[in-house]
C-alpha cells in the first residue's frame, strides 16, 4: 500500500508537486492523471525513491520514503516513461543484470524471464542475440515492463506503459495489470490514454500544477460533474475545454 501526506517538491522557486496527499490500498489500480507538466512524473519519481521530496512524507508498504529508501526500492517496480535501457546490452543481459540487483539467483531469474517472454510473445533468441538498441520500441517496452516486475514487487508504478506497444500487447498488458491487482498488488498507472484508464482503473487521481484536483472512482466523478466521459471531465478540469475552438482558429491560419 501507498500512503502520501503533504508531499511537496520544489525546484528552486518552482513548486512541481504541491502538498499532495492520498492513500492507495493493496489490490487497487489508480489512474494518475494530469496535463503535461502537472507533476505526475515528479511524484512517481519521488515515490520510487529517485527524487528526494522537499517536504511531506510518504510510505510504501510501511517503509518510510526518506529514511528507508532502499527498502522502498526493494518493494516497488517502476516503468519509466522514457523506457530507457542500456542499449548495448542484449535483452537477456539487461534482465539478468536487473535480477541480480534485486538479489534474484541466476537460475530463478532465468525462469522468471522465460515466463515473461512467453507472456509477451518474445523469442528467447531475440533476447539472447540482439542488442536492445536493435529492438523495436514495443519490444523494448516489453523488456522494461519485465524488468519492473521481475522481482515480484507489491507496488508497481507505470508511467505511460502502453507507449509503443501494439494493440495485442496492449490488451495483454491491461489484462496483466488487472490480474496483478487481483493478487493484491498496488498499481499506480499514469497515462494520457484516458479511455484505457477509464476501463482499467477503479479510481483516478487528477492533478494539475502539482495540486490534487479530483480523487475518486471514474464513473462517480464523471457523473458528479456531468461530463459524460473521463476525457471530457479531464479537459474540463485542466483547462482544455476551449481546445476545439483553438484548433479551429489555428487551422484557419493554414488557409491559402
Amino acid at each position: 500500500m501507498i500512503s502520501v501526506q503533504q508531499l511537496t517538491k520544489k525546484f528552486g522557486a518552482q513548486v512541481a508537486v504541491d502538498a499532495l496527499s492520498f492513500e492507495v490500498p493493496a489490490g487497487q489500480i489508480v489512474g494518475f492523471l494530469g496535463p503535461n507538466g502537472a507533476g505526475k512524473t515528479t511524484t512517481l519519481k519521488m515515490l520510487t525513491g529517485m527524487l528526494e521530496p522537499t517536504s511531506g512524507a510518504a510510505s510504501i508498504q510501511g517503509f518510510d520514503l526518506v529514511r528507508q529508501t532502499l527498502d522502498v526500492k526493494r518493494h516497488v517496480g517502476f516503468v519509466p516513461e522514457s523506457g530507457a535501457v542500456f542499449e548495448s546490452l542484449t535483452g537477456l543481459e539487461y534482465l539478468q543484470m536487473v535480477a541480480a540487483l534485486y538479489g534474484i539467483p541466476g537460475q530463478a531469474a532465468l525462469e522468471r524471464i522465460k515466463q515473461f517472454i512467453a507472456f509477451f510473445d518474445l523469442s528467447f533468441e531475440t533476447l539472447t542475440d540482439k542488442l536492445l538498441g536493435a529492438y523495436s520500441k514495443g519490444m523494448r517496452r516489453k523488456v522494461v515492463i519485465t524488468a519492473a516486475l521481475l522481482h515480484n514487487p507489491p507496488v508497481v508504478f507505470f508511467d505511460e506503459p502502453l507507449d509503443g506497444l501494439d494493440a495485442n500487447a496492449a490488451v495483454g498488458f491491461k489484462t496483466l495489470i488487472q490480474t496483478l491487482a487481483r493478487e493484491g498488488k498496488t498499481i499506480v498507472y499514469s497515462s494520457h490514454i484516458l479511455d484505457v484508464v477509464e476501463r482499467v482503473c477503479e479510481r483516478v487521481i487528477i492533478i494539475d500544477k502539482g495540486k490534487m484536483l479530483l480523487d475518486g472512482a471514474p464513473e462517480e466523478l464523471v457523473a458528479a460533474h456531468g461530463s459524460g466521459t473521463l476525457e471530457r471531465l479531464f479537459t474540463q478540469m485542466t483547462g482544455g475545454s476551449e481546445l476545439e475552438q483553438r484548433a479551429a482558429d489555428f487551422a484557419k491560419t493554414f488557409r491559402p
Binding site: E87, S88, D129, L132, G133
Partner: peptide, 14 residues
C-alpha cells in the same frame, strides 16, 4: 561497448 548500440553489430551479441 558504449551506452548506445550504434556502431556495434546490433543483430548479434558482441
Amino acid at each position: 561497448r558504449g551506452r548506445s548500440s550504434r556502431g556495434l553489430q546490433k543483430s548479434g551479441a558482441p
